[in-house]
Simulated scan of single mutants.
Amino acid sequence: MTGPQPRADAQAAARTGALMALGSMFCVQLGVVAAFSVFDQIGPDGAAWLRLTWAGLIFLVFVRPRPLQLARRDLLACVGLGVVTAFVTILFMFAVERIPVGTASALEFLGPLSVAVLRGRNRRAAIWPVLAMVGVLLLTEPWRDSVDPVGVALALGAAACWAFYILLTQRVGDAVSGLQGLAISMPVAALVATALLGGAVIPDLTWRHVLIGLGLAILLPVIPFALEMLALRRMTTASFGTLMALEPAMALVLGLVILSQQPGVLPIIGILFVVAAGIGAERTGARVEDEAPPHERENDPGDPGYVVP
């Protein structure tokens, strides 16, 4: 069925999804600020491992996954999401240890930007990812510092994982009701992180570090990843990827408010670019009927796949 009302409903859902994405980005940036404040105590490997392990435990206990009730392909998608979640977290943490966070953020944004460009169906909407990328470059000014090639490679790896994370998050969110997908993927991410980092981190942990990790995990990834999965049920991956350009702008604003970091002229211009791109992405971000998950299309509470919006 098509017409003004379904279109209006889709646009309203896209606006809700955009607000969820903004809430996610805010938590992410608070989590980044908090992580930097304790890097000297737990290091990037400790921060990554504690975040993922606590997140896995939280989802395991409070959501209680039911993997045996899923189709095999849906379960594999959840596992794949867990693997890329672990790698995007670990790679970015090690990248910012070697290169400036602005440079790492600009490089990592190539992931969602690629999704926005490749998955966009509206040719006129292609201007928003381009505008967003220009804004991100102006915001982060990666050319101002010497760059470690290993750090660049780590950031590009995080970008690739972020692209797959967006695609898999929408795939899992469409196929698995509620937060069941995250309840499976996050414990998988914790297992991957433990296999890669646990041996180096666990022997040096203290109870203080464990409690710090709990706070970091709630800010990132527990709240943001839940919001992103809900947002991607309401938005296209192209618009979501473009909207992520607002994250560096939000980081700059929080840096000004919390850390008293004064932005230059180019970052201020960059904010205007990414805000314009974010508004454009939100307005063109509604998922059409054939893109929406079955439970969103039917919206029938009697349907076993129904999810409360």
Rank of each mutant, 00 (worst) to 15 (best):
F36T: 14
F36I: 09
F36R: 14
V38K: 07
V38N: 11
V38G: 08
F39M: 15
F39Y: 15
D40F: 01
D40M: 05
D40A: 14
D40K: 13
D40T: 13
Q41N: 14
Q41D: 15
I42T: 14
I42D: 03
P44E: 03
P44D: 12
D45K: 08
D45Y: 04
G46L: 06
G46T: 08
G46N: 03
G46I: 02
A47P: 04
A47G: 07
A48C: 02
A48L: 00
A48F: 00
A48I: 06
A48M: 03
R51H: 00
R51L: 01
R51D: 08
R51W: 04
L52W: 00
T53F: 02
T53N: 03
W54V: 09
W54G: 01
A55E: 08
A55F: 04
G56Y: 00
G56S: 08
G56I: 05
G56L: 00
L57C: 02
L57N: 08
L57Y: 10
I58L: 13
I58D: 06
I58Q: 05
F59T: 11
F59I: 07
L60D: 03
V61C: 10
V63A: 04
R64N: 10
L68A: 15
L70R: 00
L70I: 10
A71K: 14
A71S: 13
A71R: 15
R72D: 11
R72H: 12
R72Q: 11
R73Q: 15
R73P: 10
D74A: 10
L75A: 13
L75E: 06
L76D: 01
A77I: 11
C78R: 02
C78E: 12
C78H: 00
G80K: 00
G82K: 03
G82V: 02
V83Q: 05
V84D: 06
A86Y: 09
F87R: 07
F87V: 09
V88P: 01
T89H: 13
I90D: 10
I90C: 12
L91F: 09
L91W: 06
L91K: 03
F92P: 06
F92A: 13
E97I: 02
E97W: 07
E97S: 14
I99T: 10
I99Q: 04
I99D: 11
P100F: 09
P100K: 06
V101D: 09
V101H: 12
V101P: 11
T103A: 11
A104K: 04
A104L: 08
S105C: 10
S105Y: 11
S105D: 08
S105G: 14
E108C: 10
E108S: 11
F109C: 08
F109M: 03
F109S: 02
F109L: 04
F109N: 05
G111S: 06
P112K: 07
P112G: 12
P112R: 00
P112D: 08
P112T: 05
